[in-house]
Each structure stands twice: as structure tokens, then as C-alpha cells.
Design a protein around this nucleic acid. Sequence first.
DNA 1: TGAATGATCACG
DNA 2: GTGATCATTCAT
Length: 194
Amino acid sequence: MKPLREAFYRRNTAVVAFELIGKTLLFERDGIVLSGRIVETEAYFGADDPASHAYRGVTPRNEVMFGRAGRSYVYFTYGNHHCLNIVTEEEGVAGAVLIRSLEPLRGISEMQKRRKRMHIHELASGPGKVTEALGITREHSGWNLTEKPFYVTEPEGAREEWLHIRATSRIGISRAKTVPFRFYVQGNSCVSKR
DNA sequence: TGAATGATCACG
DNA sequence: GTGATCATTCAT
């Protein structure tokens, strides 16, 4: 399967966040393919979104959010965890989709090793777990996700889960708590817990 | 130079 | 419910 192209990401962030549900995220490293179905995302905008890192303009950390769509934005938070985003919108406009949860597909034993957990629903059911399962750190920020080895594709088969996608407020933020910019597959055990 | 904060997780 | 743990940001 071919990677999703830059034009997919160069659109409204909430639309991209919604449409990324059900797609497959892949990272091929050291001859091992790690992949999962995206089952939970959140949209973060720019100047009009007080919960976004880009709310107050460009900083050294967030500058990739203002750059070209389809790039990774990885940041370190709470002294322990990394979070993976994919940049959206036209160049010069801030936006990114936080990848909150994956349903593991390939490379499960490698994810179990990295996470020190066995159960499928513990491997990538939260943004910090996603990056730990795939071994993603700030070194992987700014990568071009429209080409291998780190990319997103259409799922195998039909995208049936669109019927079951829910939208709610975003998790873990202190501002803009009401807008429904979180999307997830209802009933999927790999979605993060409330 | 310092203090506050944080798009989290695991454990009890 | 709470502690861990530190990079980032903004104010001083």
C-alpha cells in the first residue's frame, strides 16, 4: 500500500483527524515492521485554539506545526512521555493531529518488548504508549510521513468502522475543554480509558 | 534565573 | 487519587 500523500494532510485539521481513524500507521525499522490501526485521534489548531502548543505562535518546539503537512511533530511531556502528531493545514498555518491510540497489527512481539506489557489493549492505548510501543522520540520529529519508513496507508479492506466513530472533547487539557475535537472508534478496547 | 505547567502513565 | 520527572515557556 502506498503512503497517504501530502494533499491528504493539507486540509482542515479536524477533517484530517476524523479521516485518519481506521487508517494504518507503519514504522519500518531494523527490518521489523511495526504497525497499527489508528483508533483515536485529536485535532489541535493554532492561534484560535487555546489548548494547542501553537496558540501563542512559533517557538523552537512547535515550529514544525507551522510547516509542511504530512510531517511528524513529536514532543516530550510530563518528564516521561513522548507524543506523536501529524502536521496538517497549508504551510504557514498551524495544525496537527495527535495520534492517541493504535490497535496493533504487525510487530506485536516487538511492541510487547518495548512496552513491557503483554496484552494487546495495553500496548498503544494512549499517546505515550503509542510512542513507547513504536520507539518514537524527539529524534523522529520533522520526518516526512508521506514516504517510507514511517508512513500512513489506507487500511486493508473496507473502512467499516466509520459508522462507529464518536467525537468528544479532548483529554488532558485545561482550556477549550468543550469543543469536540477527539475522535475514536466506539467500543474498541485499544482506545485510551477516561 | 526561576517557577509553573503539562495533548501522561502506572500503581494503590 | 496521586507521585514521578523534566523540557519548555514566560515572567522576573
